[in-house]
């Protein structure tokens, strides 16, 4: 096992985790910059594999991508180090923030900031839906699946996981 390479991997993914603001896709662009461009540990072609695999496997895209990059570069030990370090910084910060947030949740200043943050989150998710929609929706079949999913989870309280798997089967029939 190459300890110096592992520690480099650790530092890289510590950085990627600490600066990926706003979800998995930010993590992907950071991985591309750090691992492909700056370190040249992976080729652009290999990174395309990372992109594809992390999006078709279940779980958070940022975690899938980090684990796979670590695995590609250094096998099992690389996978462990990359996954651990990409989570580490935010894990520590969340614990600290959660501690103080739960203590001061009813204070005026925290309540006031939340007054802005809560609707902001909804606005942000709407923009993600919009951008993803522009990329994804090509014809009536896509719209049909979206409608089926929304109606089944909202109206008939179908579990979202069931809805996604049913859509996978529907994909085989429709496309």
């Amino acid at each position: 096992m190459d300890i110096s390479m592992l520690s480099k991997l650790f530092i890289k993914f510590l950085n990627i985790g600490a600066f990926s603001y706003g979800g998995g896709y930010t993590a992907l662009s950071l991985i591309e910059r750090e691992i492909v461009h700056n370190s040249q540990w992976l080729t652009t072609e290999e990174f395309m594999d990372v992109l594809a695999l992390s999006q078709i496997t279940p779980g958070p895209v940022g975690i899938n991508a980090s684990t796979y990059v670590g695995y590609k570069i250094m096998g099992m030990s690389g996978a462990v180090v990359a996954t651990f370090s990409v989570v580490l910084v935010s894990f520590i910060i969340v614990n600290i923030v959660a501690h103080y947030f739960l203590k001061f949740r009813d204070s005026k200043i925290v309540k006031s900031i939340l007054l802005g943050l809560k609707p902001a989150i909804i606005g942000i998710i709407i923009t993600v839906v919009y951008k993803l929609g522009l990329q994804t929706i090509k014809d009536y079949k896509d719209i049909l699946i979206i409608l089926l999913v929304v109606v089944s989870v909202v109206k008939f309280k179908v579990h979202p996981i069931i809805a996604i798997f049913s859509s996978a089967l529907l994909g085989i029939v429709l496309f």
């Binding site: 993600v128 839906v129 896509d142 409608l147 994909g171 085989i172 496309f175």
Partner: peptide
């Protein structure tokens, strides 16, 4: 399969909103 999953994920995110 992923042609079916991709729009489904948009539906799930609408549900989230």
């Amino acid at each position: 399969i992923f042609s079916g999953v991709r729009p489904a994920v948009i539906g799930i995110m609408m549900f989230s909103v």
